[in-house]
């Protein structure tokens, strides 16, 4: 159970850097407008960020694209867990039968 002092300091500072990003939205939150264009932009954050996270994965290959479409269709009918199961099964099948782009 050894911890190098320089590594420990690095971990603490990394934690502080991460915490800064995560608390900053709560600090500025009360000063953000309740309506208007900035509010429209903030309301779009969940869809915008989640889309940006997955976009490269969706288009990384034909199997991923096919599985993403299957996931969207499944998500309109099933709870999230069912849609995830459909997506993972589809990507495994797709990777077995389809090549890369």
């Amino acid at each position: 159970m050894t911890v190098d002092p320089a590594t420990f300091i690095a971990i603490l500072v990394m934690g502080l850097a991460t915490y800064t990003t995560r608390i900053s939205g709560f600090i500025i939150g009360p000063y953000l407008p309740q309506e208007g264009r900035l509010r429209q932009a903030l309301d779009a954050v969940p869809a915008a960020i989640l889309t940006a996270v997955v976009a490269p994965t969706i288009l990384s290959g034909p199997a991923e694209l096919m599985a993403s479409i299957a996931t969207i269709i499944a998500a309109r009918r099933l709870p999230a867990l069912g849609a995830i199961a459909v997506g993972v099964a589809a990507v495994l099948v797709g990777r077995h039968f389809l090549g890369a782009w």
């Binding site: 190098d4 320089a6 590594t7 300091i9 690095a10 500072v13 990394m14 502080l16 850097a17 991460t18 800064t20 990003t21 995560r22 608390i23 900053s24 939205g25 709560f26 500025i28 939150g29 009360p30 953000l32 903030l42 309301d43 954050v45 969940p46 960020i49």
Partner: peptide
């Protein structure tokens, strides 16, 4: 450990959390 470089890398990769926490606030 190059603590300043590591902290800067962590900060940059986590900048999206500013938007996420503002949205959750």
């Amino acid at each position: 450990a190059p603590w300043a470089a590591l902290a800067l890398a962590a900060f940059l990769i986590n900048l999206r959390h500013v938007l996420m926490s503002a949205s959750l606030s």
